[in-house]
């Protein structure tokens, strides 16, 4: 058995940072998007902006204390070099500061689309979207940079992590919507709510579809190749040590189940032009499944990468 230098705190950080960065990026892009869906867009943007910074900060706290020398963490900022961890730390640092500022522009109860802070909010959104994607991607680039870890040594990991981060971000916004929206009998508000849920669910289905394709390609290329990568892939292919969490939690629970639930929810409007009906139990099940899958994805890949090694000495 091999030692696993990066354990649960790092895995939890990858998941939390992805989720938070995803939520902020989704919020920013929804805010900046032109046309359609009216004021419901602002509600989504607000939700994502308020959710985002917390998990990122919590995750950052976890990895700092996972360091062998936590009190030296600031040494990371004495210089910048080509190490993905160095570049990523700068991204993370700037992202935390700006995403907190971005969240603050939504905090006043009077915050509304055209208020005094609107230009600042839009400006911050323009910066936070790419930064959030950077934070979500760098974790995978960091893993992918090493020939010593054949399972990770692939650019496709970056695509996988960023799609999963965005999808976890959307899931957390849907979930927050279910719990924190004020119930109202006013048809205009209800309509708004249904609109925003529809917008979120359709975007999420696209993200999940993309993620399924990337997972498929990742496995396909692992299966087609020979040598180090093929040996490493054995840990997650059927029969491998991590096959069960990978296929069960990542593929079935995290991708297939929510994907089909979302397709089922949006099909009536998409295909037959019927009115979209929000359905609360489904809006709890599919985001929770996505979040479980997002964590399981980090868990299985981070562990599998470390318990496999290059084949030939």
């Amino acid at each position: 058995m091999y030692e696993v230098p990066w354990g649960l705190p790092v895995i939890a950080y990858f998941f939390l940072a992805g989720l938070g960065a995803g939520a902020v990026s989704v919020s920013g892009s929804v805010l900046l998007r032109k046309g359609g869906f009216g004021s419901s867009r602002f509600a989504i943007a607000r939700c994502g902006a308020l959710i985002g910074p917390l998990p990122v900060m919590l995750g950052t706290f976890l990895i700092v204390f996972e360091l062998g020398q936590p009190f030296r963490a600031l040494n990371l900022f004495h210089l910048i070099n080509l190490s993905p961890m160095s570049i990523g730390s700068w991204f993370l640092n700037i992202f935390i500061i700006l995403s907190v500022l971005y969240a603050m522009t939504f905090m006043l109860p009077s915050a509304a689309p055209g208020d005094r802070l609107a230009p600042i909010r839009r400006g911050l959104a323009w910066v936070c979207v790419p930064l959030g994607i950077g934070v979500a991607i760098y974790t995978a680039v960091m893993l992918g940079a090493m020939p010593a870890r054949p399972l990770w040594n692939s650019p496709i990991l970056a695509a996988l992590f960023v799609l999963s981060a965005l999808s976890s971000g959307v899931a957390s916004i849907i979930l927050a919507g279910v719990f924190f929206r004020r119930k109202s009998s006013d048809p205009a508000i209800r309509n708004d709510y249904e609109n925003s849920t529809y917008l979120l669910i359709t975007s999420d289905a696209v993200l999940l579809g993309g993620e399924l394709m990337v997972v498929f390609l990742f496995l396909l290329f692992g299966q087609l190749t020979i040598g180090d990568v093929r040996y490493a892939m054995d840990t997650i292919l059927p029969g491998g040590q991590l096959a069960l969490p990978f296929w069960g939690l990542v593929v079935v629970v995290g991708l297939l189940i929510p994907f089909f639930i979302e397709i089922f929810q949006m099909a009536p409007k998409l295909l037959h032009g019927r009115k979209f009906r929000s359905h609360v139990p489904l809006e709890i099940i599919s985001p929770v499944a996505i979040l479980i899958g997002g964590f399981a994805l980090r868990y299985t890949l981070v562990i599998a990468g470390q318990i496999s090694a290059p084949a030939a000495l």
Binding site: P5, Q69, R72, A73, M85, A145, A148, R149
Partner: peptide, 14 residues
């Protein structure tokens, strides 16, 4: 005196 113990190098050494 500089190392923060991030263990990245431990992962990267083949």
């Amino acid at each position: 005196g500089q190392c923060i113990g991030c263990k990245y190098c431990i992962q990267a050494c083949p």
